[in-house]
Design a protein around this nucleic acid. Structure first.
Length: 243
DNA sequence: AATCGGAACAACCGCAGTGCA
DNA sequence: GTGCACTGCGGTTGTTCCGAT
């Protein structure tokens, strides 16, 4: 059988229109089917991706707002590279978008760090590149200190402010990496996710983990409880993508 | 005006999970 | 119980855009 070659690469407007039309007809399911009946020489996978990342109504375009950036930092700190999960907390943003943002953001930080390292290593005896940051007061530690929701807000504020200023994001990143290793071994998140009885996570996890985990399940409540970012939600819904 | 580098964006790939026959 | 198709996710790569030099 000679199969028509599947198209790859950038989508053209005509393809987009076709896809939108057929998704309207058949819904956001059966992508292989849609790919076939629409006459697009694309894989179902490709169609789905195009829809989810670009054509879906309500998608926001453009740069992340500072609030969104802050939320991404928070949630990444909490969940690691669970982009789709993080994306659900940012209406109008896709996992791909967040992933891209994080990548470029972290690459930048890594480069800054490299530079800082090369400078400090030539002029200082310390082996720690983080000597300017009190090691005993990591972001996690800070969070643990804050138990009330207000404290939580406060802590988050401090933490992300610092992150925005630059340096401490490196630490956060490192800690994420190391804590992921640890937590994957302990698997506390998994146990909660799987609906087992509620157990205390390891000490390294901040108290607000609990909040977020329950938030995750209760979409209605999560909006309320994400009060610090409620303005963001409002913004998102008010600024859906213009097509 | 040219070009270079970095940031942002778009798309593909491979794998894992899930549902169904 | 098993195999298969479909879907979703995370990682990676390629392309485009834009500002600095």
């Amino acid at each position: 059988m000679v199969q028509e070659e599947t198209r790859k690469g950038p989508w053209i407007e005509q393809e987009d229109l076709q896809l939108v039309y057929f998704v309207g007809l058949f819904g956001e399911r059966r992508w292989d089917f849609i790919a076939k009946v629409s006459g697009l020489n694309r894989t179902g996978k490709s169609c789905r991706l195009r829809w989810v990342n670009y054509l879906h109504p309500g998608l926001k375009r453009g740069r992340m707002t500072p609030q969104e950036e802050r939320l991404v930092l928070e949630l990444h700190l909490r969940w690691g590279n669970r982009w789709s999960r993080i994306a659900r907390k940012l209406p109008g943003r896709t996992d791909n978008e967040i992933k891209n943002y994080w990548r470029t953001h972290m690459r930048k930080k890594a480069q800054e760090r490299k530079r800082a390292l090369s400078l400090s290593s030539s002029s200082c005896c310390s082996t720690s590149p983080n000597k300017n940051i009190p090691m005993e007061l990591s972001s996690k530690d800070k969070i643990e200190e804050g138990s009330s929701s207000n404290d939580f807000k406060d802590v988050k504020g401090k933490m992300t402010e610092e992150g925005v200023k630059g340096y401490p994001m490196d630490r956060i990143w490192d800690e994420i990496a190391s804590s992921e290793e640890v937590s994957s071994g302990l698997g506390y998140e998994g146990s909660i996710e799987e609906g087992s009885s509620f157990t205390c996570p390891p000490m390294a996890s901040p108290p607000w983990d609990y909040c977020f985990d329950s938030l995750w399940r209760m979409d209605e409540e999560e909006i309320k409880l994400l009060a610090p970012f409620s303005d963001l939600s409002a913004y998102n819904y008010g600024h859906s993508r213009e097509l």
